[in-house]
Design a protein around this nucleic acid. Structure first.
Lengths: 127, 127
DNA sequence: CCCACCTCTGACGTCAGCGTCAAGGCTCAG
DNA sequence: CTGAGCCTTGACGCTGACGTCAGAGGTGGG
């Protein structure tokens, strides 16, 4: 697959794929003219990269941990890194959940307040 | 409270508080010499700002929505904004949860692989 | 009154993950 | 063979949330 195909399939820009290669996250085979060609699983790999970025990992962390995500083989250090990130993500989920719930409370309070004001207006208009 | 106190209590830098003020997220009263003084609830407000940043809101969005978080009063537009962000956060939580679970699967697979290799080594040594 | 410590404004630095532009080369359907 | 549309490298730009530094002034315990 050429770079545009992979980019379209993964929903990112060609620029991103070149950036990933620069960072050591993604490899390609070059044709004689220098054009990049990717294996089929590159698309899935890119999706992993995006997911890990979205989870707050740095490109450095992704570069270190992505190999064992694909190969299933991990050194002790890699396993430790994976677990650390997993824990971080878990904490993040809890924080977000807390924020969401507090936001729900705010929304509910604002709705209540709106209804109160509507009731006030209704009462004053009927008075 | 002076800026350093608030910063320490909220776990951020004074620089951040000045930045928040610049962005319209936080207000202070100035002494005659120009030094900032904050009300007690500034600390909680800063914690809200941090939580909303962590949830991926821009400072612009925070500036728009933070007032009704504190006052409980919201216009229709603000309510819509709050709900939109709430939905975004919810989606983000689901994505993170999915990533975490997939990461768990990877970790489990890597552990299995480690055990297999250990078993292989054990078998070859007994052969 | 002094001195250590806090605070002020203004301005430039940083870092990541790309966007974007320039100037050129490759590909392939017609 | 030609032109539309892909691709290449290199390099600068951008955005947000601050960090950091300089040079100056406020503050309060002893």
């Amino acid at each position: 697959m050429r770079i545009g195909e992979v980019a379209a399939a993964a929903g990112v820009s060609p620029r991103s794929l070149r950036y990933y290669e620069e960072r050591g996250l993604l490899t390609s085979v070059r044709s004689s003219s220098g054009q990049r060609h990717y294996a089929q699983d590159a698309v899935e790999r890119v999706r992993w990269i995006q997911a890990l970025y979205a989870a707050g990992l740095s490109s450095r962390a992704v570069a270190e941990l992505l190999p064992c995500v694909h190969t299933g083989v991990a050194t002790d250090a890699m396993l430790a890194g994976l677990s650390a990130e997993r824990t971080r993500i878990d904490t993040q989920i809890r924080d977000l959940t807390s924020t969401r719930d507090r936001l729900d409370a705010v929304i509910a309070a604002a709705n209540d307040h709106s209804r109160e004001c509507a009731a006030d207006r209704s009462a004053s208009s009927t008075a």
